[in-house]
Design a protein around this nucleic acid. Structure first.
Length: 259
DNA sequence: CGGGTCCTTATCATTACTTCA
DNA sequence: TTTGAAGTAATGATAAGGACC
C-alpha cells in the first residue's frame, strides 16, 4: 500500500485471497492521510496518557479535535497504549523478581557453604576435645587403671563405684550443645567400653550422629527447595505467591531447615 | 432481555530499521 | 562500499467476546 492510502497494485495482485475487509482495514488513515501519527500528536497523547490511562469521552473528543484525529483513533491509541504498557509492566516486574531471586539464591548458596564450614569446624573441635579428654583420663586415672582392670566384677559397674571420671574443672568443658540447643554431656553414657578397656562415656553416634548424618539429612531437606530455586524450568512454572514468602520469612524461619 | 458502549485480548498490515551475504 | 533481501520491533487498526448500564 502506498503512503497516500491508495490500494497499491502489488497489494491487489500479490495476494488475490486477501479480503476486501482486510484491504480496507489496512487502509484507514487520519484526515491528513498519514498512517503514523506525527511526533507532536504522539507527544500530546503520551502526556495525556501519563496523567490518565483512560480518557473520559469528553476529553477524548477534545483531544481528537486538538490533534486533528478521529475520536475513534484516539480511543484506539489509548487502548493499544494500555495493552502494550501493561505487557511492558509485566516484563519489568518479571525482571525485578528474577533479579531478586538470583540475589537470594546466591545468598543462600554462600550461607550454605558458610554453614558447612562451621559444622566441619565444630566437628573438628569436638574430636579434639575428645582426644584431650582421653589424655587427661589417662593421666589422672593411670594408677587406678591397674585396679580397675584387675576387678572381676567388670560388668556390674555403676555410677557410684565409678569415681574415675573427670575432675570437676573438666566437666563444664564437656558439656556441649548441638545446633538445636540439644544438650549433650560427655560421660553421661556408660553403655559400652572401648576395645582397650576405656569407657569413652560417649555414644559418639548419638552425639555426632546429627552432624555425621547431616549432609544427607540436610540434603533431604534442602535439595528439593534448592533444586526448585535453581531449576529454570521450575522457575518458569513458579507462581508468584507472596503468602509463601511471608510464610518462609516470618512464620517459618528458613534456617530451621538446617537444624 | 436486547442494544449500545467500552474494555481487554489477539491478531493483522504496514512502516522503519537492522543485519548480512 | 553499496545494495537488496530477510528479519524484527513498533504502531495503527480491527474483531471477538465480556462487562456494565
Amino acid at each position: 500500500m502506498t503512503e497516500g492510502g491508495e490500494y497499491s497494485p502489488a497489494m491487489i495482485s500479490s495476494d488475490p485471497f486477501m479480503s476486501m475487509k482486510k484491504m480496507k482495514k489496512s487502509n484507514v488513515h487520519n484526515k491528513n492521510n498519514q498512517r503514523r501519527f506525527s511526533d507532536e500528536q504522539i507527544k500530546s497523547l503520551e502526556m495525556m496518557f501519563e496523567s490518565e490511562t483512560r480518557l473520559e469521552p469528553r476529553k477524548k473528543v477534545q483531544l481528537a479535535r486538538e490533534l486533528g484525529l478521529q475520536p475513534r483513533q484516539v480511543a484506539i491509541w489509548f487502548q493499544n497504549k494500555r495493552a502494550r504498557w501493561k505487557s511492558k509492566q509485566l516484563e519489568t516486574e518479571y525482571n525485578i523478581l528474577r533479579q531478586n531471586y538470583d540475589n537470594l539464591a546466591s545468598q543462600f548458596e554462600s550461607l550454605k557453604k558458610e554453614k558447612q564450614a562451621l559444622v566441619s569446624e565444630l566437628q573438628r573441635l569436638n574430636e579434639e576435645m575428645l582426644h584431650q579428654t582421653k589424655e587427661q583420663e589417662r593421666q589422672c586415672c593411670g594408677d587406678q587403671a591397674v585396679v580397675a582392670l584387675s576387678s572381676t566384677d567388670h560388668e556390674s559397674e555403676n555410677e557410684e563405684n565409678h569415681p574415675r571420671c573427670e575432675p570437676e574443672e573438666v566437666r563444664p568443658e564437656m558439656e556441649m550443645y548441638d545446633e538445636k540447643g540439644h544438650h549433650g554431656v560427655l560421660c553421661e553414657h556408660h553403655d559400652h567400653d572401648d576395645e582397650d578397656g576405656y569407657n569413652s562415656n560417649i555414644k559418639r553416634e548419638e552425639y555426632f550422629g546429627g552432624f555425621e548424618e547431616e549432609p544427607d539429612h540436610l540434603m533431604n531437606i534442602v535439595e528439593p527447595a534448592d533444586s526448585c530455586l535453581t531449576s529454570s524450568d521450575d522457575w518458569r512454572g513458579f507462581k508468584s505467591d507472596t503468602s509463601l514468602l511471608h510464610q518462609s520469612s516470618s512464620n517459618y524461619p528458613w534456617w530451621d531447615f538446617w537444624s
